[in-house]
């Protein structure tokens, strides 16, 4: 006859236990919990530190995510949109003080220009498929066809298709706003400088410089461009060759060969 199996009480069993056994079990249980917590804590710490290290590497190796804010990684999925920071705003009043109107107008104009530059320069979809029609809505209908004809002055032109990645180096935007005697904005001139560096599929570095001035007026409640006294886009390419080492050149640190992916 087999003995009946011994049934061990569960830890939460309220069956009476001798005091020393209870104390011993409690101590073992406490140590186990403590070790588990320690282990879990270490794992979390390791994961956090690993993430931080990878993040630091990404930041340092890819300046497109610099804290400057205007630099935007073009090829990272869900990239933040490019946005101009507004520099100087000048109110040119023909009557009442129009500084507030000028500030408000400059914000709207900066938004419109930012959207345009984001689309035509920074959006990988544009590199692949060309400048979308909607981008040209920045221009008034009276000048839109002309601007499209001269698109190479505003965009990457034929170089877009060979672009692999792009990051903004520096930008500036100043806005002059002309107001009527009542202080209502009538026209504005926005002056833009935009510089970006990219990598072509050929492995060449490309430096893209765009400078432009845009004449704005309000049509149908929207600020639109009705002229451009100047619009220039220059693209310089540089062949990359291996160097002897870091000390061989002082100007080699700007490399857009980041971890970004091609479109």
């Amino acid at each position: 006859m087999r003995p009946a199996p011994r049934i061990e009480p569960a830890p939460d069993d309220h069956a009476p236990q001798p005091e020393d056994v209870k104390a011993s079990r409690a101590a073992r249980s406490g140590v186990a919990r403590s070790r588990r917590r320690l282990f879990v804590g270490l794992v979390i710490l390791v994961v956090v530190l690993a993430g931080a290290a990878i993040g630091a590497w990404a930041v340092l190796s890819n300046p497109t995510s610099s804290p400057a804010g205007s630099a935007t990684p073009a090829t990272v999925p869900n990239r933040p949109p490019f946005f101009f920071r507004i520099g100087v705003v000048r109110a040119d009043s023909t009557g009442r003080d129009a500084l507030n109107a000028a500030r408000d107008s400059s914000v709207v104009i900066a938004g419109r220009l930012s959207s345009f530059y984001d689309t035509v320069f920074m959006d990988p979809a544009t590199w692949k498929e060309g400048v979308p029609d909607r981008a040209w809505l920045l221009f008034d209908s009276s000048v839109r066809a002309r601007a499209r004809q001269e698109s190479a002055s505003f965009t990457l032109g034929s170089q877009a298709a060979s672009l692999k990645s792009l990051r903004v180096e520096n930008t500036s935007l100043s806005v002059d706003v002309l107001a009527d005697p009542r202080g209502n904005p009538q026209a504005a001139v926005a002056t833009v400088e935009f510089k970006a560096e990219g990598l072509l599929v050929t492995g060449q570095l490309a430096t893209i410089t765009n400078t432009a001035s845009f004449l704005f007026r309000i049509e149908g409640g929207e600020w639109v461009v009705f002229g451009y006294p100047s619009a220039n886009t220059a693209i310089e390419t540089q062949a990359l060759t291996p160097s002897a080492g870091p000390s061989s050149s002082s100007g080699t640190s700007a490399s857009p060969t980041s971890a970004s992916t091609s479109p």
Partner: peptide, 24 residues
């Protein structure tokens, strides 16, 4: 990234330069 980490440009080429102006 393969090869030497740092590279230096040795050929600079103006690939394209376009300018336009329209004053209405």
């Amino acid at each position: 990234k393969s090869g030497p980490v740092l590279a230096q440009p040795d050929v600079v080429e103006i690939h394209s330069a376009h300018g336009s102006s329209f004053v209405p």
